[in-house]
Amino acid sequence: MKAYFSDRMGAALLMAPLLLFLGAAYAWPFFGVVNWSFTLPEPGLGQYGTLLSDPLVQSVFVRTLRIAAIVTIVSVAAAYAITVVWVRGTPAQRVVAEFCILVPFWISVLTRAFGWVALLSNRGLFNTWLQAIGFISEPLTLVRNEFGVIVGMTHFLIPFAVFPLASSMRGLDDRVLLAARGLGSSRMRTFWSVFVPMTRSGIIGSALIVFVFSLGFFVTPAILGGGRSVMIAELIYLRIFQSPDWGLGAAISVVLVLFVGALMALLFRYVRPKQLI
């Protein structure tokens, strides 16, 4: 009992600097932001009222939710396919899948966003090719709109969606899949009615991670949206740095943090933190 207690104390002491740092770096400034949201330009709930009535703010919220939802569905579906190969493929397939999953982590988010601009812009690789083979006559608008933002964000987020899926697939008992086939189920049917449902916790964890990340995305939407497809994080930036409207920017931030917090709480009800890495 005593040893247990002092172990706990020791752990708490070791953790203390980290907790202090997190407090100083996140909690303290966040309370400052909360404070602004209620006091700028004058004390009261005025900024939250604006937030509820301003059509621009609302359209940005709706767009953010829509983009996040689409990105989540596409990323999780793509990540699922990659993860199946990574976890259950032949050794050679595994190496290829692992490469596809890990390489993006070595390239900065900025580089990747500009890479997509280069590929998707009016005189980019895709449009040039499509015109060259005579598939289209006028260039398609692939960036500076929601499409470009979705492509860039999906590309960035797929690797993050892989890990919760991989951990749920690794934990799966192979004999259950054999049992399904032994009972007469084709490979396809076994996949859809046994394998996929058994990885449900991984799918939920993966979807929530991608969704939460998407809500606060800044760099990729700012570059690939080209100011026309503004998402919440960019809106906050604009309120605070361009139109000095700190109160509204702060109020939007507070709403975003609370929303993400609620989603995280939901996430940890379904998956243990260990499964996410």
């Binding site: 259950v176 054999l178 399904a180 032994g182 007469g184 189920s185 058994m198 449900r200």
Partner: peptide
């Protein structure tokens, strides 16, 4: 002949029921 076409009934060690 593949397993799904032989359709022998099988009870595995550890049962291998569908947990969901």
């Amino acid at each position: 002949r593949p397993a799904e076409q032989r359709a022998a009934g099988m009870v595995f060690q550890g049962y291998a029921l569908f947990p969901h």
